[in-house]
Write a protein that binds this DNA or RNA. Structure first.
Length: 199
DNA sequence: TAGGCGATGCTCT
DNA sequence: GAGCATCGCCTAG
């Protein structure tokens, strides 16, 4: 499948704006095993000064990438079992990012099924830990520029996107009331409780 | 279909 | 020593 690489002028700067703007954009993973790719259908914004953000306590070894520049990959291990993939979103010195929570599988579906050891299309990339497993994303891909990297990059949306829904973020305790989760309404590949989607 | 819970390793207090 | 931007398996209904 052919994808066209995005350039910086097509992406919003600013964390909340980027979280909205990434809906519909394609995340492409090229590895020795082949290509796998999916359309982003769900994101969460972790903004400047956000108590729920890894950047809140300032730069550390783990979160250093968040303080560099926009459109880098920030990958970390959560609960000792799953990786989460984020896109950095603010200029150097400001720590912020957008968590990608779910993809609609587009390309390399058999490859993703092998990595996931599952043939459930709907669950292949539905959830932050699942999509990183499906695309073989781990800490070795932290800090890559998604505009220039050959292995992990962003591509132009293949079709118009549907209406965007907004809700509280999932799985956090601090600043849990803030409505910083964005998703394509009605898309079956969106994660989370079906009831957590007031307009 | 929903809710409870263990696995597992790193970060922070 | 507690908590965590999760997942998958189990049970109850």
């Amino acid at each position: 499948m052919i994808f066209e690489r995005l350039d910086a002028s097509e992406l919003a700067v600013g964390t909340e704006e980027l979280a909205r703007g990434l809906i519909g954009v394609v995340l492409v993973r090229d590895s020795v095993d082949g290509r796998s790719a999916g359309r982003i259908v769900e994101t969460e914004a972790y903004v400047i000064g956000d108590p729920a953000s890894h950047a809140y306590m300032g730069p550390r070894q783990r979160n250093a990438t968040m303080f560099l520049e926009p459109f880098l990959s920030y990958v970390y291990l959560i609960y000792g079992t799953s990786f989460c993939f984020n896109v950095t979103s603010e200029p150097r010195g400001e720590g912020a990012g957008v968590l990608v929570r779910a993809l609609e599988p587009l390309d390399g579906i058999e490859l993703m099924e092998r990595r996931r050891r599952s043939d459930s299309l709907r669950d292949l990339c539905r959830g932050p830990g699942r999509l990183t497993q499906a695309l073989d994303i781990d800490r070795s891909l932290d800090g890559r520029s998604l505009l220039t990297d050959p292995d992990l990059w962003l591509a132009r949306a293949p079709r118009a996107r549907g209406p965007i829904g907004v809700s509280r973020r999932i799985g956090i305790t601090r600043a849990a009331h803030r409505r910083l989760r964005f998703y394509e309404r009605g898309n079956p590949f969106v994660s989370g409780p079906r009831t957590l989607s007031p307009p």
